[in-house]
C-alpha cells in the first residue's frame, strides 16, 4: 500500500472515532447542557479497559504491568471498555449532577481528569504507567489472518459499522422524547421539573451514555493503533472535540459530524505533517493548539450556533395540519 493510501485510510478510521466522540459530547453538552471538561478521560478509560481485556496475562516477556489481561475477543473487550467509561461517568455524575450550576460539574470533571491522569501514571500496575500498554492484538486478525493492507480496509469497515450504528442511535436519541426532554432541561431545569421531569436522572442518562460513546471510541482507537499511553490523551484532546462540536453546530448531530471532519481530521491532520522547526519540535503542535483554543473562542463570539445550527423539530404526517388546511380551503 502506498504511503498516501495508508495515510488516507488511517484518516478515515480517525474520522469515525472522532465522529463517535463528538456525538457523545453533543449528547452531553449540546443536548443536555452538561459541561464535561474531561471528556477525553472517558475515552482513555474505554481504551485502556478494551486494551487490557484483549491482552493476555502480563508476563515477564512483555515487560508490562496491567490489570485484567483476559484475552477477550474484541467485541466483548469493547463492551468492557464502554462499561468502564460509563461507570466512571456515573460516579462523576453522582457527585456533580445534583448541583444545578454548571461550574460545579466543570470543576469536578477537571479535577477528575487531573486525578485519573495522575493515578494512571503513578500506579504502574494499572495500565503500565507512563509507558502505557502496547502490543494489543489486532481485532479478529488471528482468525482472519489478513495481510496488513487488507486488514486496514477490514478495520475501516468494522469502525464504519460501529459508527453507523452509534450514529443511528445518536440521531434516534436526539429526535426522541428523551432528547426533547434533555433539551428542555438544558433550557430551563426548573420548568422541566415543574412538569414532572427528574432533571437529575435525565442528566445522568445523558452523562453516562455520552461517556459510553467516549469509551467505545477509545476502544476502537486502541484496536487500531494497538497501544495507548498517557501521552495520547492529554487534556488538549477534549478541547479539540469541543471546538469540533461548536464549529460544526452543537445540538445538531450532522453538525457534530461536520465538526469531527473539519477540526480533528482536516485541520489537525493537515497540520500534523508540517515540517518541524529544527530544535523546536513543540512549536508546531503548540501553535496548532493555540489555534484550536482561539477557534473555540472565536466560534462562540461570531457564530455560537455553529455552521449547522440546531434544527427545529419536525413532525411529518400530522393529521391536524391537513384538517386545518382543508378547513381553510373550504372556508
Amino acid at each position: 500500500m502506498s504511503p498516501i493510501v495508508y495515510y488516507l485510510t488511517t484518516l478515515v478510521v480517525f474520522f469515525f472515532i472522532f465522529a463517535i466522540s463528538t456525538w457523545g459530547l453533543n449528547l452531553q453538552f449540546g443536548t443536555a447542557g452538561i459541561l464535561n471538561f474531561t471528556y477525553i478521560t472517558f475515552f482513555a478509560i474505554g481504551g485502556y479497559f478494551t486494551g487490557v481485556s484483549m491482552l493476555g496475562r502480563p508476563d515477564a516477556l512483555s515487560n508490562m504491568r496491567y490489570i485484567l489481561g483476559l484475552n477477550l475477543p474484541f467485541p466483548i473487550a469493547l463492551l468492557v471498555g464502554a462499561t468502564a467509561a460509563g461507570v466512571l461517568g456515573l460516579l462523576v455524575g453522582l457527585v456533580a449532577l445534583r448541583r444545578l450550576r454548571s461550574d460545579y460539574l466543570a470543576i469536578v470533571t477537571v479535577s477528575v481528569g487531573a486525578i485519573v491522569y495522575d493515578f494512571v501514571n503513578v500506579n504502574t500496575g494499572l495500565f503500565n504507567g507512563a509507558d502505557g500498554i502496547a502490543g494489543i492484538p489486532y481485532p479478529f486478525n488471528d482468525s482472519l489472518n489478513l495481510d496488513p493492507n487488507t486488514y486496514t480496509f477490514f478495520y475501516i469497515a468494522l469502525t464504519g459499522l460501529v459508527t453507523l450504528v452509534l450514529g443511528l442511535l445518536a440521531f434516534r436519541i436526539y429526535n426522541s422524547p428523551l432528547g426533547r426532554t434533555l433539551r428542555a432541561i438544558r433550557e430551563d431545569a426548573d420548568v422541566a421539573s415543574a412538569f414532572g421531569k427528574d432533571s437529575y436522572r435525565f442528566r445522568m442518562i445523558a452523562m453516562v451514555v455520552g461517556c459510553v460513546y467516549a469509551g467505545i471510541a477509545g476502544g476502537l482507537l486502541v484496536g487500531f493503533i494497538s497501544a495507548l499511553n498517557p501521552g495520547g490523551w492529554v487534556a488538549g484532546e477534549t478541547f479539540l472535540l469541543y471546538a469540533a462540536l461548536l464549529l460544526g453546530g452543537r445540538g445538531n448531530n450532522w453538525g457534530a459530524l461536520l465538526g469531527a471532519f473539519l477540526v480533528p481530521v482536516l485541520f489537525q491532520e493537515a497540520t500534523r505533517y508540517l515540517p518541524q522547526i529544527p530544535g523546536h519540535a513543540e512549536l508546531i503542535p503548540a501553535l496548532r493548539n493555540m489555534i484550536v483554543g482561539g477557534l473555540l473562542i472565536a466560534v462562540l463570539w461570531f457564530r455560537p450556533e455553529g455552521i449547522l445550527p440546531e434544527r427545529k423539530a419536525k413532525f411529518p404526517g400530522v393529521e391536524y395540519l391537513k384538517k386545518r388546511k382543508a378547513a381553510l380551503e373550504v372556508g
Binding site: 422524547p177 433539551r183 433550557e187 413532525f315
Partner: peptide
Amino acid sequence: GMTVLENMLIPPPQQSGENIFNA
C-alpha cells in the same frame, strides 16, 4: 430555544419515548 409546539410536548406524563432504551 425550542419551538412552541415542542414546548407543548414537554409536559405530557408517561412518555415511553423518554426511556433511553425505547429512544
